[in-house]
Amino acid sequence: MYQDKVALVGGALGLVLEQIKQAIAQRGQCSLVLAGGSTPKPLYEALAQQDLPWEKLHIFWGDERYVPPTHPDSNEGMAREAWLDAVDFPAANIHGMPTSAQDPQKDASRYEAELREFFGVSAGEFPVFDLILLGMGDDGHTASLFPQTAALEVCDRLITVGEKSGQPRLTFTIPLINQGRCVIFMVAGANKQPALQQVFAETADPVAYPSRFIQPQGELWWLLDEAAGTVLKSFNNLVIE
């Protein structure tokens, strides 16, 4: 647990750099999935200051609002502004979610096909990303997997269509996230406390708090600032650092 958001971002930067370097050393490249929202933006700005072999990084997104990358609500647009367009990043290594078909289901299928081609996996198989960054909303959602929505039930696809307030979003499915070698949640703010209590409770409904569904085969890290994480100090089954 970190004292504040600045310290949280610093801790996340160290962990992300470690995972990137490990992936490159072991597999020659790193597949990195970015999150949207305000919490990871300073992390992306910090990554832009690093001296990394950009040609060995491949960037993906775990979810996207159904808007063009130039729209102010675009997750891709935010990451480009904060990081990707600020360094000499190869355009071919940036794998944004398509949002131009005027049909979210069609674009979800297009992105799934791109992932299958990139990783060389056939239907029925799930690729393994090196590093997946996630946030959590105050309702317990992550990516665009919102409480009580049909996207939570999709287990045979890589990408599906989520929705919030009637607005479609493209999103990784739960089983795709859970194939990750390393999944990192970044959560900040006192408004996240009620959801965190339910996510870490011994028993709770994951359909109501979808972040509970995220149990990857690899490492799982929850990076919290004190405003968010202090509520977990009373949980006897957790080690809070």
Rank of each mutant, 00 (worst) to 15 (best):
18 E>S: 08
20 I>Y: 00
20 I>K: 04
20 I>Q: 04
22 Q>Y: 09
22 Q>H: 07
23 A>P: 02
23 A>G: 07
25 A>C: 08
25 A>E: 09
26 Q>F: 01
27 R>C: 02
27 R>Q: 15
28 G>R: 02
29 Q>I: 01
31 S>E: 06
32 L>T: 10
32 L>Y: 05
33 V>K: 10
34 L>Y: 10
39 T>K: 01
39 T>L: 02
39 T>W: 11
39 T>Q: 01
40 P>D: 13
40 P>C: 07
41 K>I: 10
42 P>K: 09
42 P>F: 14
44 Y>L: 15
45 E>L: 09
46 A>L: 13
47 L>P: 10
48 A>Y: 09
49 Q>H: 03
49 Q>N: 03
49 Q>V: 08
51 D>T: 00
52 L>N: 00
56 K>I: 00
56 K>P: 01
58 H>S: 09
58 H>V: 13
59 I>G: 13
59 I>W: 10
59 I>N: 12
63 D>E: 01
64 E>S: 04
68 P>V: 03
69 P>Y: 06
70 T>Y: 10
70 T>Q: 12
74 S>M: 12
74 S>C: 01
74 S>N: 02
77 G>I: 01
78 M>I: 10
79 A>Y: 10
81 E>S: 08
82 A>F: 07
83 W>L: 12
84 L>R: 02
88 D>K: 03
90 P>T: 06
95 H>N: 15
96 G>R: 15
96 G>S: 15
102 Q>F: 15
102 Q>C: 12
105 Q>M: 07
107 D>W: 13
